[in-house]
Design a protein around this nucleic acid. Sequence first.
DNA 1: GCCAACGTTGGC
DNA 2: GCCAACGTTGGC
Length: 151
Amino acid sequence: MAYWLIKSEPEECGLTHFIAASDQGIPWDGVRNYQARNFIRAMQPGDRVLLYHSSCQRVGIAGELRVISEPYPDPLQFDPDSRYFDAKATRVVPRWTAIDLVLASALSRLVPLVELKRMKAFKSSPLVKKGNRLSVMPLTREQWLAVEKIA
DNA sequence: GCCAACGTTGGC
DNA sequence: GCCAACGTTGGC
């Protein structure tokens, strides 16, 4: 079982969306960055995921999710009407990958970025680095436990 | 809204 | 294969 963190704009797909879909989960699609994609491809059912709210008034970690599918080809890459359409992707050789996630639990409070920056466990994490744009990243067990402890 | 960081694209 | 231009991300 591995630990991950994913970023999302709460307006787009945040904690409230996962609460609303808490019985069936939500496909995590539309990722168009190779490094993030490669992390998605390494995910397995049962993996634990922290949901981070980005580009909003209160940036920080809002909830815990769980992976409930194997990685699969992101259907949006084949849809010409989607903003995530990719003309260079084929059914035989898909380029982008999606995964299904379900809410495990909302944190008792939002753990803000400023607080993460102070935590020893996140000292070297790309999450707290200025200019970081990685939207999917692995977490160490230490980082996961550190968040659970203070949430 | 601003700006820094960084990935992608395309000309050469 | 280099690198400038451009677009996007994301904190503030």
